[in-house]
Design a protein around this nucleic acid. Structure first.
Lengths: 111, 111
DNA sequence: TTATTATATAGACGTACGTCTATTTGTCAA
DNA sequence: TTGACAAATAGACGTACGTCTATATAATAA
């Protein structure tokens, strides 16, 4: 079970730091719609397995991925809800009210 | 005039890196609703003036603030539109469709 | 021009971070 | 129990980054 409850406050700097690496963003993209093992990710990403484990630990710490242990494998998947909450906080932290609306429009127009 | 047009593609990693520092986020908060000079920011932030200039350069590079020169002063303000676009891209990059909607809800509920 | 003020740039310094190899821990099959 | 496999941890190494002081650049005032 994650330490991140629905009401957990968002540290926007920590959230940004977790996102501030290309390898981690690629891992997040991979885990967006699929449960993947560390081995799967290692193969697809093309960096060493300990490096992948390291990045997964950072993403876990930020609550952005969840880990499920099954036998000797661990399946990772993106924590969509946490991501949503963090993005929401990011928007409202700096954007004045009318601009949040615009952000929403931008987001929806991309779909 | 900024190099960032409305249609400029968003480098989500670069965006996250620009946000991934507490001093820069504090600067962004300060510039959210006010045009401020480097001197103003330096006083309010409590770090050396060259450090502030350095962070402002990074935020400028990411398109997150705009600079207006007036005499020997430079006024900085947050680029709300760019921030909106980047947040939107961040949401849609990882969140599946139904989750974007949820992100929007989270954002709006905070208002 | 000369002095003063505002900002930017250069460069040094220490710390944080991403990556790797080697090893450990944990799980399953023979 | 032993061997093989999956993932995590330890530790080394180089680079990137945040901060500072010193200096340069640019604009205004005397």
């Amino acid at each position: 079970m994650s330490i991140y409850k629905k009401s957990a406050p968002v540290d926007v700097v920590a959230f940004a730091k977790a996102l501030a690496d290309d390898t981690r963003q690629r891992i997040m993209s991979l885990c967006c719609c699929e449960r993947l093992t560390v081995g799967d990710i290692t193969t697809k990403i093309g960096v060493a397995q300990p490096t992948v484990s390291h990045h997964l630990a950072i993403l876990r710490e930020a609550g952005l991925v969840t880990a499920e242990h099954q036998g000797r494998e661990t399946f990772y998947s993106l924590n969509q809800e946490r991501l949503s909450v963090c993005c929401g906080q990011l928007m409202v932290r700096f954007a004045p009210d009318e601009d949040v609306t615009q952000t929403v429009k931008h987001a929806l127009n991309k779909r």
